[in-house]
Design a protein around this nucleic acid. Structure first.
Lengths: 201, 201
DNA sequence: AATGGTATTAACCGATTCGGTCAATACCAT
DNA sequence: ATGGTATTGACCGAATCGGTTAATACCATT
């Protein structure tokens, strides 16, 4: 990546980043042309090639950024320090919605990159993705104090229920073109409170 | 579509259908080449053009088939006649998993087609999709007998929870290359039973 | 107004890919 | 051998691709 790119005003950087996320999220690597990205960003193809030597460099740069931003937003959300599992999930989704507000296509891009198999980028991509992989470990149940929950409750099933519903939530959000972030958050908050009432003593 | 296509042995028809679903589900219409579909199906491009006059015809044919098959599988599952909401959801997902067994990429194809905006197919596509649209109305709560459920339970929230978790389930399934259908069904059954225990009196 | 450095682009290139055609071939029963 | 059918390789013109380069627009300083 050309150093000049970092010196760009943030608004322009964002436009280019999001254009890249957008185009690469809609087609596989090979089928995602640079001129489309340039057009989407409102700059010429030549300028895009000035900032990034070639397509591969741009693609890997985007993946690296996606990983960095995800880590940053998640840790900034404080969801890791949260001991209350309900608030932990809420903070997690809060972080994701804020990311979607600023980078609407980043998570879709990352998901697609996760399964990208093009020889030209496959190997180097995997190295960048590695930290991402550990992150998806939160499918499994964290440690909980059983005395806080209703007697006889299967904590594993409870967590699976909540985890899946959250995934479903994100899924629904992505399949909507425009996202009313505040509305989404309110709905999710209601769901969390519903669970608290349902599961806690 | 050429009449000869219908006279093909089912195995070969299936190969071609699934190849189409697969390729079109990975890229937008414009970026999905016929020769890739042919190769995936194990036939020559010429033969594919013998069965379908052009790309547009194949694409629209696939969408029509996807819609027919979905309707067929769903009504055959008996989920519409089911009065027990839990069993209704189970039967619904059962139908979907059976579809995924036979047509692994069909639902992804349909989802992508849902948002396809290419001028070449957009208008005619919308006509075919119309029935599909009504189907997604089941986001809203069906009528339920409140006396069956635990007192004070917010039925609307309950349904939203279950609906979202089911969506999350499908989502997870699709992002796995190969699907262990039986395993998936067993897990979902456990989830349903968990809900029954949780929500019913 | 001339200068010079920087940001940006239009025009171009060779290679590849695309949708689609068609004449030729493989296959198979008679 | 024959004749019909299923299937393909080779080909076409047009478009698209990644990438280069020489030219231009822009802007502050003199």
């Amino acid at each position: 990546m050309n150093e000049k790119f970092c010196q760009l005003p943030e608004e322009k950087q964002l436009r280019i980043l999001n254009a890249g996320f957008r185009v690469f999220s809609k087609s596989p690597y090979r089928k995602s042309p640079m001129n489309e990205i340039a057009a989407e960003a409102g700059i010429s193809k030549s300028l895009l090639f000035f900032y990034f030597r070639n397509k591969k460099e741009l693609y890997l740069f985007l993946m690296k950024r996606a990983e960095e931003l995800t880590m940053e937003y998640l840790s900034k959300s404080g969801c890791y320090e949260e001991s209350d599992i309900f608030e932990m999930m809420y903070k997690g989704l809060l972080a994701k919605t804020e990311m979607m507000r600023k980078y609407p296509d980043m998570s879709l891009f990352a998901l697609k990159a996760y399964y990208e198999e093009d020889e030209e980028v496959k190997d180097e991509l995997q190295k960048i993705i590695a930290p991402y992989r550990k992150l998806s470990t939160n499918k499994s149940l964290p440690k909980l104090d059983p005395t806080l929950f209703k007697d006889g409750l299967d904590l594993n099933m409870m967590y699976q229920d909540m985890f899946l519903a959250s995934e479903g939530y994100m899924y629904q959000m992505q399949n909507q073109g425009r996202i009313d972030v505040d509305r989404v958050l309110m709905d999710y908050r209601k769901l969390i409170d519903f669970w608290k009432d349902l599961y806690l003593k």
